[in-house]
Every structure is written in C-alpha cells, then in structure tokens.
C-alpha cells in the first residue's frame, strides 16, 4: 500500500515554541508593571488616610514579615489547610461523581431534578447551623462548608461536560462492543468530558480558598478567623496581610493545578 502522504499534510505543532516564549515574557513584564502601578496607587492613597483606614504597603510588608517570623502565619495557615484540603477533596469528588451520574442518566436526572433545584441556590454560609449541629465547631464543620461550595461547582461542570459528550463517539464505542453504563462512562464519557471536569476542579479550588473565611466565621481557627478578629480590632494591616496569604495560596495551588491540567489535556 502506498505510504506517501503527498497532499495530506500533518500539522506541526512545535514551530511556534520560540514565539510563545516571547509572548510569555512580554506578558510577564506587563503583569509586573501592572502590579507595580497598583502598589504605587495604594501607596499614594495611603498617604492621605489614617493607618486604621488604609495602611501603606510598607506597613503591611512589615506586618507580613512580623507575622511570618512569629510563626502566627504558619499556624493559621496550617489550621486552615486542615479543613481546606479535606473540604475541597470531598466536595470535588462528590460533585464530579454526582455530576457525571446525573449528566449521563436521564432517569437519575429526572428523579433528582426537583431536589437539585431546591438545594442549588442555598449559599454555603446559610448552612453554618448544620455545620455546627452535625459536626461541631471544628475542622469537620468548616470542611463541610467548603465541601458544599466545591460540590456545586464540580457538579455543574461535570454535568455540563457529560451532556456535551458526542453521541457519535458513543456510537463508535458501541460499535466495538462496549455496552452498559459503566463501560461507556469509563471509556468515553469521562475522558471526553475531562476538559470541563478539570475546569470545574480548578474553579472549585479557587472558590474554596474564598470559602475559608466563611467557614471559620463560627469560631474554627485559621486564616479566616485571623482576618475576622483583626477586622474587629481595626488592624487593617493584619487583615491585608492574611488576605495576601490567601491570594498567595490560591496562586500557588492554581499554578500547580494548571500545570496538571495542561499535562492531562495534552491531546487538546
């Protein structure tokens, strides 16, 4: 059989590598410039305000260093991680499993639709009573609040992803003798929906860092608790310090996850 691929070109994907590095560098420089501008504006604004309204970047930097040096920061971060990690993981897994199941099965979807639509608009914060009653003022209670947040984001991302899976790909799988929900979901539905599922996970991870503050509102110690207590004492420099900690944590986890995402979705 003829093996020449004349008139039948494969696209090459690596000749753009050089240009990409230039674009990345440009973007990095622009972003750094933007950040400098923002801190500059903040500094100028702080000149005209008393410190308890808006402390200057220098004051915040000093507080940041002091909090880090005293070990307070590490303690608070460690405490938050104790509920952020289990809350995010449990909520994410349950959200994906439920989303895939309901997105795939018309029957399950029809049965659960009224319940889902009733529960969906409930904000995680409104569930604090249940967190306390069911789990207590502890990491489990805070993890529950975070898990609820992670659940819905992952539920809808997975549900949408599964709904969008091409019927044609399922036909191909069926034509090769795959049948039954489990086989088709494992071999076709989950890989085909993986871009949406991964986007859901990533969005959820960010949302869960936001929920750390809410989840500690009823007394569980951690970064959120530290922010709330400092707010009550008008220690705005401490508030900003721990907001920065949350931002940095988000940035760290998000960057790491984005790398995972790129690697898993190399086929795209």
């Amino acid at each position: 059989m003829a093996t020449d691929l004349q008139g039948d070109h494969a696209q090459t994907t690596d000749d753009t590598g050089r240009a990409r590095i230039d674009v990345d560098l440009r973007r990095l420089l622009l972003g750094f410039g933007g950040l400098l501008g923002f801190v500059g504006l903040w500094w100028v604004a702080s000149l005209f305000q008393p410190e308890f309204v808006l402390p200057s970047p220098a004051v915040v930097a000093a507080t940041f260093i002091a909090e880090a040096a005293s070990g307070e920061m590490a303690t608070a971060l460690g405490q938050s991680i104790l509920h952020w990690v289990p809350g995010t993981i449990i909520g994410t897994l349950l959200g994906i499993v439920t989303g895939v199941a309901l997105g795939w099965s018309r029957l399950l979807d029809d049965i659960t639709a009224p319940v889902v639509r009733t529960l969906r608009p409930v904000p995680p914060l409104a569930l604090i009573g249940f967190a306390i009653a069911w789990f207590g003022i502890n990491n489990a209670g805070a993890a529950f609040i975070i898990a609820v947040g992670a659940f819905w984001i992952n539920f809808y991302a997975s549900y949408g992803g599964v709904e969008g899976v091409s019927e044609d790909l399922l036909d191909v799988a069926r034509s090769f003798g795959l049948k039954g929900d489990l086989e088709l979901v494992r071999s076709v539905v989950i890989p085909a929906a993986s871009p949406e599922i991964l986007t859901g996970i990533r969005t959820g991870i960010g949302r869960c860092w936001m929920l750390v503050v809410a989840s500690e509102i009823f007394g569980v110690p951690g970064i959120g608790r530290r922010i709330l207590r400092a707010s009550n004492n008008l220690q705005v420099d401490v508030v900003i310090t721990y907001i920065l900690v949350l931002s940095l944590m988000f940035l760290l986890v998000d960057t790491a996850f984005r790398a995972v995402q790129r690697w898993v979705l190399a086929w795209r």
């Binding site: 091409s166 044609d168 790909l169 036909d171 191909v172 890989p191 993986s194 086929w267 795209r268």
Partner: peptide, 11 residues
C-alpha cells in the same frame, strides 16, 4: 464512520 470519530484523547 463518515467523520472519522477518533477519540481525541487517545494517540
């Protein structure tokens, strides 16, 4: 099939 329908996530 007409439109190939390869599994894009597979080599």
């Amino acid at each position: 099939f007409q439109e190939y329908h390869l599994f894009p996530w597979q080599t």
